[in-house]
Design a protein around this nucleic acid. Sequence first.
RNA 1: GGCCCGUUCGUCUAUCGGUUAGGACAUCUGGUUUUCAACCAGGCAAGAGGGGUUCGACUCCCCUACGGGCUGCCA
Length: 470
Amino acid sequence: MHEQPPQIVTRFAPSPTGYLHIGGGRTALFNWLFARGRGGKFLLRIEDTDRERSTPEATAAILRGLAWLGLDWDGEPVSQFAQKDRHAEVAHEMLARGTAYKCFSSPEEIAAFRARAEADGASYAVFQSPWRDAAPETHPDAPFAIRMKAPRTGQTQIVDQVQGIVTIQNDTLDDMIVLRSDGTPTYMLAVVVDDHDMGVTHVIRGDDHLNNAARQQMVYTAMGWDVPIWAHIPLIHGPDGKKLSKRHGATGVEDYQAMGYPAAGMRNYLTRLGWAKGDAEIFTTAEAMAMFDLAGIGRAPARLDFKKLENTCGHHMAMMADAEVMAELAAYLRAAGKPALTAAQSNLLQKALYCVKDRAKTFPDLLEKAEFALAARPIQPDEASAKSLDSVSRGILKSLTLQLQNVNWTKEGLEPILNDAAAANGIGFGKLAAPLRAALAGRSATPSVFDMMLVLGQGETLARLADAAE
RNA sequence: GGCCCGUUCGUCUAUCGGUUAGGACAUCUGGUUUUCAACCAGGCAAGAGGGGUUCGACUCCCCUACGGGCUGCCA
């Protein structure tokens, strides 16, 4: 008889005070990969207990960001605020167990204490509530907060899967408030209660919470609950090594969609940012799930490298199925606020994908390379390509138009004609290709001229050549 | 200020006491080429600094420097 290993449950718990930050996106991704790769569950909880700053718009933006990254969660998102009664119930249970107490010190008194300590030049000041051991008979009839009765001596150890064993001296921690005097729970209590109630087995989150873990662990202990497995991952920094902020440019997950990075590439890049498994660089999501582990997470903050992001995205763009490219391209256009493709454009682009998707890294890149399939006559050559349309090359195009009237419209049929035309004019094929590009695409960087001619078809090709030859 | 965490090529990283310190991106050189992309061959490039421990340290310990986090009746 083997004991069934408990199912892994992870969660992502953002506070809805803004868009989904790229760092948050990666945290969610790590949680998702870890759970999904092991047949576990990935839950979503919205930490909306700060009523001042939480907005439904932010929640919607976060959900959109996760959806774009392809991270799906089990069940409905949990609202932390909705659990407030349960949080209060636990706070009172701690009271009953003697692991928490009523504190009647007012915020003003506490502020005064801190000010005094600072004035005395104390290096640090842990507020010690006079009510910690006060007899109930001495309690005034006044509002009170519930504070945890934290140990004042000894140390608390966090066994972290990323950071190792972290030891915190208990005398540096105060008796944190778990229930405010207005009856609402604090974050420190709420996370623990929710994680416990949701059955979370692995807490994978940013290492800005590492210190908090010690106090949260005290709540688990106070309630006699199993402590989850901790994994505190380093934050993402900007290219300059500083904490990623607005001045670095894109910090929101949705910004990356609007810039045209394919989600699969983004996922791959983000997975490799701060995590490694040997030399694995380019992998599918299924492969990432199979490989991902906590042991591979690095301990130092990682910097964003747009060049590598682009390179990774290029690989994924090439690997994507055509239908996938078309669907994601449409989503990109919407996200970037650009007009959708017409049916005709979309139809022709689909035919052209085989010769453009493996040379594009992003969707704007794809659109640029596929310009020949999207543009309508008359083709407007851009500055660079216009240079190759001089009078000599126009003449060549004109004669080509005639020679291409009766030809088998295949690569085999076209090749000899174009080669002969180049030879007849005493120029290399490259010199002939340039004006053809200008005529067919109005661009100097395009797929092969044969591919363009085949995609466009004989009628359209001849029309464009004739336009340019005029 | 105090406490906690971190530091290998420009960047992401491998290494888990013994390696010519490996790979990828970027970059440079050459090749291929029908432009772009791609591709092929090759080059440049790293253990923050200082002390220990050890026969032997990138790896273990200490100090310093730098970066980050926490230090709320915010999350």
